[in-house]
């Protein structure tokens, strides 16, 4: 993926410059942006148009799976080995409450985790990353700098670079 990357990446010191550049790029038709930041910032989300994650659907699915698993497990086991306790029904729904809850929670959490990893990998696969040495050795995005990757054709390189510089980018690097 990195070998095929064509575009520009830039670094910013200030968040307002960075968000300004994102907005202008999106207004100019560059929608497939990748940003890098030391922490999540709602200003960046707003500039990117508030993208939504699909993780909650998987969490809900996990909860249903856990609930069904617990119900099936307890019903099957209670009927397979009849163990009368204090005259209570052999398959008793109220008594299933704690285990139904716990397994629903457990499966929901695992589904959330696995779906989060899967969705991240899927998104990263779709968005190219620069492959140059300079990119690989740059380590300040987890420290105190904001980064912007703009995939574009050779034809658009000048235009993108112009926008990035207009918002006082600290460094602008072309990769083609």
């Amino acid at each position: 993926m990195s070998k095929q990357f064509s575009g520009v990446w830039a670094t910013y010191e200030f968040l307002d410059d960075f968000c300004g550049a994102i907005r202008e790029l999106r207004d100019s038709g560059f929608q497939r942006l990748t940003t890098l930041a030391p922490c999540p910032r709602h200003e960046i989300d707003h500039a990117l148009g508030n993208p939504q994650s699909r993780v909650p659907f998987f969490t809900l699915a996990g909860m249903f799976c856990g609930f069904s698993l617990a119900f099936t497990l307890m019903t099957f086991m209670s009927l397979d080995w009849i163990l009368p306790v204090s005259g209570k029904p052999i398959v008793s729904f109220p008594i299933m409450g704690p285990v139904l809850f716990e397994l629903s929670v457990l499966c929901a959490v695992w589904f959330t985790l696995i779906s989060m990893i899967g969705l991240i990998l899927n998104d990263l696969r779709k968005h190219g990353m620069p492959g140059s040495k300079q990119w690989k050795s740059y380590r300040r995005f987890t420290r105190d700098r904001f980064g912007l990757i703009v995939p574009c054709t050779q034809h658009d390189l000048d235009k993108v670079e112009g926008i990035l510089n207009k918002f006082s980018a600290e460094e602008v690097n072309r990769e083609a």
Binding site: L33, T34, T35, L36, A37, P38, C39, P40, I44, D45, L48, P51, Q52, S53, V55, P56, T59, A108, T112, L113, S115, M116, L119, I120, D123, L124, H127, F141, T142
Partner: peptide, 16 residues
């Protein structure tokens, strides 16, 4: 790496 694609799913999952 702290990309928007990572933070988007990460923060939603963390909230959940």
């Amino acid at each position: 790496r702290g990309t928007n694609h990572e933070w988007k799913h990460y923060m939603r999952a963390y909230l959940l």
